[in-house]
Simulated assay, not measured.
Amino acid sequence: MFRKTLIALAALGAATSASAQQAGPTPGPKSGEQATIPFLTRSDVRTFTSTDNGEGVYIEDARRNWYYVAFFSRCNELPWAVGIGFKTFAGSSQLDRGDTIFAGRDRCTIASIVHSGPPPEKPKKAKKPKGA
């Protein structure tokens, strides 16, 4: 009985990963699950990385969980922001859909938050040869 259950679970895992690969690249094991970022204070955000086009941001919390936050429209100053701010509904301590992230003078309204892996690594620029 235990062996049949183990085989069934392995088959289910293989089918799930195959369907995830067909849907497109996903950055982490929990990617795509809707989420809120709980207990959001200054010390609870470890780091953030913006997408190059300003359509979203990866946020890592103090427990090293990654989230991908997508906006309703582009957040133009986010890719160059050194820091970001948060405004939640009614002073809540969690970040959720409809809340706002501030980057420079931009106010970016959150369309969705999903569990994610770390942001994809950016390609490194080729070095120019010396003397050229």
Results as ranks from 00 to 15, higher is better:
Arg105Leu: 14
Gly54Met: 06
Ser93Pro: 06
Arg46Glu: 09
Ile110Val: 07
Thr49Lys: 13
Thr100Gly: 05
Gly85Phe: 10
Gly28Glu: 06
Ala23Lys: 00
Thr26Gly: 03
Glu60Gly: 13
Ile59Asn: 06
Met1Ser: 13
Arg3Ala: 03
Val45Gln: 01
Ala14Glu: 11
Ala90Asp: 09
Gln94Thr: 01
Asp106Val: 00
Pro129Tyr: 07
Ala81Ile: 12
Ala35Thr: 02
Asn76Cys: 14
Ser50Cys: 10
Ala70Thr: 11
Lys4Tyr: 05
Leu9Asn: 12
Ala62Tyr: 03
Ser17Phe: 09
Ala11Asn: 05
Ile84Pro: 01
Gly98Thr: 05
Asp99Gln: 09
Ala126Leu: 15
Thr109Tyr: 08
Asp106Arg: 02
Ala62Thr: 10
Ile37Glu: 00
Ser17Lys: 07
Ala11Thr: 13
Lys4Pro: 09
Ser43Gly: 04
Pro118His: 09
Lys127His: 08
Ala15Tyr: 08
Arg107His: 13
Glu77Trp: 08
Phe102Val: 12
Trp66Ile: 10
Ile7Trp: 08
Glu77Val: 06
Asp61His: 05
Asp96Thr: 03
Val69Tyr: 06
Thr109Gly: 03
Tyr68Pro: 11
Ala8Leu: 13
Phe2Pro: 09
Pro25Ile: 12
Ala14Tyr: 07
Ala10Tyr: 12
Glu33Gly: 02
Glu77Gly: 07
Gly91Ile: 02
Pro79Glu: 14
Ser17Gly: 02
Gly54Glu: 02
Gly24Asn: 01
Lys124Thr: 05
Arg63Ile: 13
Glu77Met: 07
Ala90Leu: 07
Val45Thr: 00
